[in-house]
Amino acid sequence: MRVWKFGDDVDTDAIIPGRFLTIYDPAELAKHVFEGTRDEFAVEVREGDIVVAGRNFGCGSSREHAPLALLGAGVKIVVAKSFARIFYRNAINTGLLPLVCPETDAIQDGEVISVDIEGGYIEVNGRRLPIEPVPDFMKRIVEAGGLVAYARNLDGVEICNTG
């Protein structure tokens, strides 16, 4: 899958600017993803493409429109050296997989990579870059198909159980 490479501190205002926040439909949001920051993205991105970035991806606003816009554009995986906390959770909750890989410097824009989640690595140019495992309770949510599906089957929650 083609890589779209970004730098450090990609904020959610850059992913989807404030003026589009009355939109909730992922396909509509996708028309404006990275608008003004990287205009060719919305036009050229293809289903299954992967966003790869440096540190602190998704910092700033808590807008869930950001993972939704990426999903609407066909992106299902974002790989970064680190993620901002709210984005990380929003991504998991909406079904966008955030993968932490300390060595994203080794991945260039436009390259084709493959991701082996079970194996715990990304393959690029025959090289394997390790990815960090997804935390357990997050995995349960992903396995359920996102937080909505997880919560739908829940009658109540056990307060203060351990995740």
Partner: peptide, 27 residues
Amino acid sequence: VVMAPVDAAMIHDITGPLAIRVFYEMG
């Protein structure tokens, strides 16, 4: 990691509509 009760929850006009939709989707 704990499931903790919250004392208050705030929603506003930008992120609230989506939260409400999700609430319904969750049954």
